[in-house]
Amino acid sequence: MTATKNNKKNVSLGKPMVAGVAYRAPAGTALPADATSELDDAFACVGFIGSDGITNATDTDTTTETDMGGVTVINEISSYAETYQFIMIETKKESLQARYGDANVTEQEGKISVSHTMPTGESSEWVFEILMTGNRVKRIVIPDATPSEFGDITYNSTTVIGYDVTWAANPDDRIDGATSKEYIAPLGAAAAAALVNTIDKA
C-alpha cells in the first residue's frame, strides 16, 4: 500500500484572478465544464469583492431515532442546503443588477437608475474564478442561484459602499442534481494568459 505524504504545495490561499473573481449570467446560459475553458459571453464580472471574500456555507438537518433501550437505530441526513455569500464593492450596472434585479437597473450614457422593490427571487448563474497557491485555478460553477438574504448598506466617510448578498445554490440537473460544482486545474504560463484574456469582461 502506497502512503500519501503531507505536501505543503496542496495548502492554498484563495485569491481572485487579475481580471476578476465573480461572474454572473442569466439562467439558461451555457455552463463551463472545466477549470480553464472560455466562459460564455453572457457572463459578466460584478467587480471587486470585499476583503472577506466568498463564504460557502452548508446547512444540514439530521434525523435520529432510538429504540426503547436507547440504542440509535437511524441517524441520517434528512436535508441539505448550500449558500454563497459575498459583498460586491463596485457600484456599477452588473453589481447593482445582481443586488436589485436585472429589470430594476437601467444605464444610459453613464447614468444609472435603480428601483428598490420587493426581491423577485430571480434565478441566475454564477462562476467564481479563484487563483490558488501553487499556480492552480479553482472554478466554482453554480447553475441555479437565487438571492436568499441581503446585508445592510452603510454610507459614511470610512466604510466602502458594498452590496452584500447571500445566494442559495439550488440543485440542477445539468450538474447531476448537485447544487454547485468545482473544477481545479494546473495553470501554466500560457494557460494563465489565455484565461485572463477570456474572463476579462469587466
Rank of each mutant, 00 (worst) to 15 (best):
M1A: 13
K5V: 05
K8S: 14
L13H: 12
G14Y: 12
M17T: 01
V18R: 15
A19C: 04
G20A: 04
A22F: 02
A25I: 01
A25W: 10
A27G: 04
G28P: 05
P32S: 06
T36G: 07
T36R: 11
S37H: 04
E38R: 03
E38F: 00
L39W: 06
A42T: 05
F43N: 04
C45W: 06
C45P: 11
V46Y: 09
F48M: 15
I49D: 09
G50E: 10
G50Y: 11
S51M: 06
G53H: 00
G53Q: 00
G53M: 05
I54H: 04
T55A: 06
T55N: 14
T55F: 00
D59W: 00
T62G: 12
T64Q: 14
T64G: 08
D67A: 12
G69E: 10
G70F: 10
E76N: 07
S78Q: 03
S79Y: 00
S79N: 13
Y80N: 08
Y80V: 11
A81F: 09
E82T: 04
Q85F: 04
Q85T: 12
I89P: 02
T91G: 14
E94N: 10
E94D: 15
L96C: 06
A98F: 14
R99K: 13
R99L: 01
R99T: 13
G101M: 07
V105D: 03
V105T: 03
Q108M: 09
E109Y: 10
G110Q: 10
K111A: 14
S113H: 04
V114M: 01
H116N: 08
T117P: 01
E122D: 15
S123V: 13
E125Y: 07
W126A: 02
W126E: 01
F128C: 06
I130P: 00
R136C: 12
V137R: 10
V137P: 09
V141P: 04
D144N: 12
G151P: 12
I153P: 06
I153Y: 09
S157P: 00
V160G: 06
I161C: 10
I161H: 04
V165I: 11
A168V: 02
P171K: 05
D173R: 10
I175L: 05
A185L: 12
P186G: 08
P186K: 08
G188A: 06
A190V: 06
A192C: 14
A192N: 12
A193F: 02
L195Q: 08
V196W: 02
